[in-house]
């Protein structure tokens, strides 16, 4: 490894400063160096000791939690899934690198999560060029135009997903496939209920024996991954708990009032993209409120919107719309909560 460090040390001057030959490519060089070696920077100001958790580890934990989804997707749908992930990483990665170069900034780790989530929420038959278009749109309009990681308002993966849903409705809503099957166009549990009021058995929903987006059908694995994230405190438990709790309560009330429109709570919980959305996308700290009460409000509103869109709109699934709609309200929720919380401080200070 010493030889590798020597190599980096040798070529670093070429990428740094004003005179470096390839100074424009500095972000690329940095990302390679810092993935392998810890930065050599030392603390300047107190405190002189720092916690070992950095964003690389933080995002790495999210990827680790998504492993059950990724592995099950590859198992269910074969090497095609790997190709989709690779396309998503390559195209989105190029966009991210280009913007890092233009901004003379760094390449941020958040991209590794976005680039993984996006293919996982696509139908298994999505053509590879559509994956490329979607991730490009998501990264560009969902994140980079707002200024990159930490400043984006919407979840970039969801922006891409909504774009391809609206741009290519046929490919995104009709071309479903069962795991291990060759035949295209089987219906997802959500559409089966919507069209025929058929409830898929819970065992199939948990084990992933249904049609649906590649990463979100193995609900047992998502549940494990989501709980892992909450235990490691990478994701805040308040959002998934309030989101899923609201869906359960709201659909329980709805199912008793109009059972032909609104599916029973446990089915709502286990079918479609709800678990994946609640565990991995609504919890994105950048696009969710930072106030504690705001998190509950955010989750509850997401839950109500999800049940409403699922039951009363032309769309079969409402998770992605609900999260993106609430993303837009995030700053507003925080402002309202803060103005109530800090009334007292304002008087005393």
């Amino acid at each position: 490894m010493k030889f590798l460090l020597a190599l980096f040390d040798k070529y670093r001057p070429e990428f740094e400063g004003k005179k470096g030959k390839y100074k424009a490519l500095k972000p690329l060089f940095e990302v390679m160096e810092y993935v392998i070696f810890y930065p050599s920077a030392r603390v300047q100001y107190a405190p002189h000791v720092r916690d070992p958790l950095d964003l690389k580890r933080f995002m790495g934990m999210v990827l680790l939690a998504m492993m059950p989804c990724i592995l099950s997707a590859v198992y269910f749908f074969g090497p095609r899934v790997v190709a989709m992930i690779l396309v998503s990483y390559t195209v989105g990665g190029i966009c991210e690198v280009l913007f890092a170069i233009i901004r003379k900034g760094e390449i941020h780790e958040g991209f590794f999560v976005t680039g993984m989530i996006f293919p996982l929420i696509l139908p298994p038959t999505t053509p590879l060029w559509m994956v490329a278009v979607g991730i490009l749109f998501g990264v560009f309009f969902g994140k980079e135009v707002f200024g990159g990681t930490g400043r984006n308002i919407f979840n970039p993966a969801l922006v891409g997903r909504i774009f391809v849903t609206i741009a290519f409705p046929a490919a995104m809503t009709t071309q479903w496939k069962m795991p291990f099957a060759d035949a295209v166009s089987s219906a997802t549990p959500m559409s089966l209920f919507k069209m025929q009021q058929v409830l898929t058995p819970y065992k199939d929903l948990i084990m992933g024996n249904t049609a649906g987006s590649i990463g979100e059908i193995f609900h047992g694995g998502i549940l494990i991954g989501g709980i892992f994230l909450m235990i490691t405190s990478v994701s805040n438990w308040r959002i998934p708990v309030s989101y899923l709790g609201t869906v359960l309560i709201f659909s329980w009330i709805g199912a008793t009032l109009s059972p032909e429109k609104i599916a029973p709570p446990l089915f709502q919980f286990l079918a479609g993209g709800l678990l994946f959305g609640a565990m991995f996308m609504a919890t994105d700290p950048v696009t969710a409120p930072f106030t504690r009460i705001g998190k509950y409000i955010f989750g509850a509103c997401c839950g109500i919107l999800t049940v409403l869109i699922r039951s009363y709109s032309g769309y079969v699934e409402g998770v992605m719309f609900s999260i993106v709609i609430m993303n837009a309200f995030t700053p507003f929720i925080d402002q309202v909560v803060l103005s109530f919380q800090y009334k007292q401080v304002q008087v005393t200070s």
Partner: peptide
């Protein structure tokens, strides 16, 4: 522990760990 900064400077992602650690209940 050493004086290593143990990571790279990044924009705030509002993970709120600082809020959880703050003894003065600030954000």
């Amino acid at each position: 522990y050493t004086t290593g900064i143990r990571g790279e400077h990044r924009p705030c992602i509002s993970c709120c760990f600082c809020e959880a650690a703050c003894p003065s209940r600030l954000m």
